[in-house]
Nucleic acid binder design. Structure first.
Lengths: 362, 362
DNA sequence: GTTGGCACTCTTTGCTTTCGAGTGCTAATA
DNA sequence: TATTAGCACTCGAAAGCAAAGAGTGCCAAC
């Protein structure tokens, strides 16, 4: 059975109203607000059919209607008006992105925080699996017992480590190792760092003290970390302001799940399109999210790396606003991070700095 | 009026029981459990006096007794038996510290996470203001438009930044700047990096393109960040499992306050003694904490840097266990970070690595 | 197809009653 | 003098109940 235009309008009105008030919506308010010239009795007939069709449901026989996940799905796909952000809003986001990105290159946790603040829902930020390689290797000799490893990755982030040795190493050895590593450890991924490669490097450097293996271990660590999806959740506490999580047990369950980290990754395997995606209630694979909704947007962080930002909330989520904000945020991130060569806005009056003094955590 | 031995025992029994059950404690259970051979009527008389003295209170005329903050204070100061951690517990903590510290040098957020997991309360971790200076400066030439700044700090952490220039710089210039900065920007704090110093460095390097000021800006940024107290909160959601935060509004208020970050810093100005400190309910300066308790322990992170770990919970907190765990955790951290030269346990069979590939976030 | 009207349903709210845990007090006891 | 048994009393929590109200479903009329 096809859904008539009027039914669509009514359904949209129900969803809008329910999103606003969190109360089951009665026929009367729709008759008044939706502005289609018919009485509440007519609306009642239509509502009854919408219930039959599975778009709405009643908490109990004599209450207003509440959208089902299927109703929300219809709303998201066809009915909701695509929100346009106001100029102030886009400027606000850009302004805050500037201050963030100026300092941090891959500050995904800060991006999550921003998303959470913008939408007032808990937000998650994660990076997808990617194939980062080492672009450049440097060892800095500090003193006879100390040197610094500096590794520049293909995604232009730089990692370092201070190594303190219980033995003495002279500067020429450090120099030699630096050259050797730069020659044989660049452009490869972590799987290609084999014991064989390490031992041959050791031999080439006359390294009898296992220094090369320490450096190699760091290389593996850095590559593994850069290639491992990492997830952050921020603003879990915002859940508590939503009436559907007034039950502390329910809230606790979901929050524990969220702080657990990357469990949402199952949703991330389909990180392709750049549009905003919505997962409504039971559409989520994770059991804990079956009665919540997730909105995600992906961005291109350059060098084959995809990033994802998303927010979690009740199925009665303000999809329209959230989708608009996340979409804009993601597009801005793509523009700033993805292009690679194009300088981020707001910095062109100064030397361009692509900074990285921070590694994300797990 | 002095408090008799028996009153102390009774008070201790009330607090213990209340901590366990979260229910007002009646005279009967004390008579049975506390094991001092007297009847419930005697207990009742004593309880009435304890109420008069301010150690206990009654939610209503005909309910059991609940400790007042003053009662908890007495309990913490004199009555509670100092918990000794079991061997398994200390080993568990050490084991987890090993895996943390192996990877991260100043991973205060991970330490907070650990504290939260150990105690099952929200935890905060922060570093105090300290005076870190730059120990060493290196510039790595990457290509004509790119170089890396590597800064080693007096606390042995290393920070870096990739700088991408819209203009060409040749290797000798980078080299020259590196030497100059190493000579004049080390051993000073951020206040001493004056425009005068920058411009004189610029002149000395024949730098007409403002590269020196970019480098100096990074130096200031790094020093400022290293010297600024930073705070992390983890495990806020654990609040929700405590009955006193079943009211979502109350929980939300406290959690928002906590996620706000370093507001707890007022408590941190007294970072002196290394013992464990307890702030009970109204003893907290922050309004939002007036009916919660905070237990903190400080550790010495070396190079004049003090760190702090703490947990937040209801006044009905398991002070004994929490204090024991935090105290042990802090002492282990002091041992591992503070000594500076003494190698962390569990690594002595390998080359000693003092790693830092991560900067904490704000 | 639409609408007004009306009986019906089911939750919410407020009130009253009951129940029970725990107290405070008094008088008896060691 | 300190302790104890006993008992009346208090007060909150839980249960039961009635009234109110929102909203529906359906029917007859338009």
């Amino acid at each position: 059975m096809a859904i008539s235009e009027r039914k669509k309008k009514i359904l949209a009105a129900v969803v809008d109203e329910y999103i606003r008030t969190a109360e089951p919506v009665g026929s009367k308010v729709i008759a008044q607000n939706a502005g289609l010239g018919c009485s509440s009795a007519t609306i009642r007939n239509e509502l009854a059919e919408l219930v039959n069709m599975g778009y709405l449901e009643q908490p109990h026989t004599s209450a207003g209607r509440v959208p089902t996940p299927m109703g929300y799905r219809m709303y998201v796909n066809e009915l909701m008006e695509k929100q346009k952000l106001s100029l102030e809003e886009t400027e606000e986001i850009n302004r805050r992105l500037n201050t963030k990105l100026q300092q941090l290159d891959d500050a995904i946790s800060d991006i999550g925080r921003l998303a959470s603040q913008l939408t007032d829902y808990p937000a998650l930020a994660l990076t997808a699996q990617s194939t980062v390689t080492i672009k450049r290797f440097d060892l800095i000799y500090v003193d006879a017992n100390t040197f610094i490893i500096v590794v520049m990755l293909s995604n232009n982030s730089v990692k370092n480590k201070l190594v303190h040795l219980p033995i003495s190493v002279d500067q020429s050895m450090v120099q030699k190792l630096s050259t050797l590593f730069n020659a044989s450890f660049t452009g490869i991924d972590d799987e290609q760092i084999t014991p064989l490669l390490i031992s041959s490097t050791e031999r080439a450097a006359d390294d009898t003290m296992g220094i090369a293996s320490v450096i190699a271990a760091f290389a593996i660590e850095v590559l593994t970390e850069a290639n491992t999806p990492s997830a952050f959740i921020t603003g879990e506490n915002r859940l508590l302001s939503q009436p559907e999580y007034r039950d502390p047990d329910k809230a606790h369950r979901l929050m524990s799940y969220l702080s657990g980290g990357g469990h949402i990754l199952p949703a991330a395997d389909s990180l392709d399109g750049s549009e905003v995606r919505v997962f409504i209630g039971p559409e989520n694979v994770a059991e804990e999210l079956k009665d919540s909704s997730v909105v995600i947007a992906t961005y291109d962080a350059g060098d084959n790396t995809k990033g994802l930002i998303g927010v979690v909330g009740p199925t009665r989520m303000d999809y329209s606003t959230v989708a608009a904000k996340l979409g804009f945020l993601a597009s801005q991130l793509s523009k700033r991070l993805g292009g690679g060569e194009s300088p981020p806005e707001g910095l062109h009056n100064k030397l361009i700095i692509k900074g990285d003094d921070t590694n994300e955590r797990r």
